[in-house]
Design a protein around this nucleic acid. Structure first.
Lengths: 290, 290
DNA sequence: TTTTATATGTCAGTTTTTCTCACATGTATT
DNA sequence: AATACATGTGAGAAAAACTGACATATAAAA
């Protein structure tokens, strides 16, 4: 037989669990701390079990509270996501796509005009999101590189394999086809978010990764590429992000690119593919393979 | 900024989505149909979007409703599960373990005495559940055979690999080590739930699966084994389920058993492993490897 | 077609829940 | 000890949800 405790009480508890503070939870839910205190107590009575207890000036979760909180947080996040989605799609709101700042700047922005031409009916908003960040409410989809398997509770539309390779200023190597191990004599640049990039590439080329000497690590891919552009050394980057620089001759990639297990994918919050998401995915696939 | 619609309205909508009927939903939630109708309407206003529409005598979900319902159902199921868990563990309720009827009858029941001796403090209730069925509220864990990968939102404690092999009455083959292909001349028994069992075993033995001729299919493993016991033919069964019959000499397994990709696992509803679950898992692992 | 049974939609009034505000109490910092 | 900050609790007010009655819509039976 069905029997859930008061949902509002669960919501109050959830906010308390997130903030570990009744007053902070109260502020979040736009009520007074008294209301929260009462709701939590109510929930404890309904579950016949203490969930939070005072700990100094704030509160702490009990064992049972901790277990329950794991579920409530996941659950309320999903609910919020889903409601937001419904509300925004009903209001014919623009489709909000999140992607990393570097991808945004180096791949997407240069192709926005083309997108507008190809899909004039698609109202797209772009926003930079943290590389590994989950989909937030307010964002309809996220474009990111990652390795399968994909999480089961999200839909991931695979768009293209990731290909990485060393890139540098054209004046660094003058020859047509320099030997790969000439790299070792040059300063190498990497990003902190992908420490595996250089070793991965080396293994694909048959070079011992332990010979690598990294000269400098950058916080973001963008900074690393700027470094390569001013001649700091040799960067390792995904092909898509340097296409423009290669085309215009500002960078060269003498050894080409090798495929990695990573895939560029369009991550959707739920299982459903909205028409806008499908349209965008189709266009992205086409644009990426050009 | 956070903003969820009324949770009670969501709950009402969820019940409507499940039953596709306002009155049925009303009955489930112990309120009148008017209350449900109002709540759904309220939700539609808050999301600014129609979710259900009249369809003849009942109601049907709109596109948006369908999408939302997927989330609400998952979410409320999880919530109920979690609350149930907390409530029962607080009440020091017995640990309820579900497993298939055949495993229950042929493996677990014969070892209950042993379990009671080994873990006297573990209050265990057993209940037969459908092979592929999800964990219901009221059940703390389920014991089942399945192939990895495991779902991300559940904890699965792997206990042992599945090993299957042909079993039959001892009077069917008198020799010590009959050749495997002698099987083909005997009537073969299978279960509908594991049509892959015979082909799997054959491939492991180097026999062409297409030569197999299945004589009879049974609804449940138990029935098939009963069939083998009365001499209907050769059954293919997991080792654990026939251990007792082999020990007592009622069945023989001349070719032994081969490992399959399946694993016997203890499936828990959430991420957490309760003390009782850990105790049970440890005992199971030990008992299975005896 | 008319009738009947079954559903949903809506309203006014009532019940229940939840909230606020005020004050009490508990805990760390000064 | 005094102060600042946080939680606990009460009575009354505000908000939300529910009921019961009636209106309306649909499908099947007469």
């Amino acid at each position: 037989m069905h029997s859930l405790p008061s949902l509002n009480a669960l919501r109050a508890f959830d906010a308390v669990a997130r903030t570990l503070s009744m007053s902070a939870a109260a502020k979040q839910l736009h009520v007074t701390h008294g209301a929260i205190s009462r709701q939590v107590k109510l929930l404890e009575e309904q579950l016949d079990c203490r969930l939070v207890e005072r700990a100094g000036r704030g509160v702490a979760l009990t064992d049972a509270g901790l277990r329950l909180a794991r579920t409530t947080q996941e659950v309320f996040d999903k609910l919020e996501q889903a409601c937001d989605q419904v509300k925004r799609s009903a209001a014919n709101a623009p489709f909000v796509l999140g992607c990393s700042g570097s991808f945004l700047a180096r791949w997407f922005i240069p192709r926005l005009e083309q997108l507008k031409q190809d899909c004039p009916e698609l109202e797209l908003h772009l926003t930079a999101v943290d590389e590994s960040q989950a989909i937030r409410p307010g964002v309809d989809a996220v474009l990111r590189f990652a390795e399968p398997p994909w999480p089961e509770d999200q839909r991931v539309i695979e768009l293209a394999p990731e290909r990485i390779g060393p890139v540098m200023r054209p004046d660094l190597f003058r020859e047509e086809a320099p030997a790969p191990d000439q790299l070792l004599q040059h300063p190498l640049l990497e990003t902190l978010s992908r420490p595996q990039a250089w070793p991965q590439w080396c293994r694909a080329q048959g070079i011992d990764p332990s010979q690598l000497r990294i000269k400098q690590s950058f916080e973001h891919l963008n900074y690393m590429l700027e470094g390569a552009l001013v001649g700091l050394g040799v960067a390792i980057a995904p092909e898509y992000l340097v296409e423009e620089d290669l085309r215009t001759g500002r960078l060269q990639a003498p050894w080409g690119f090798v495929e990695t297990p990573s895939r560029l994918g369009l991550w959707l919050p739920g299982q459903d593919i909205s028409p806008a998401a499908q349209l965008l995915a189709d266009w992205l696939r086409a644009a990426l393979s050009r």
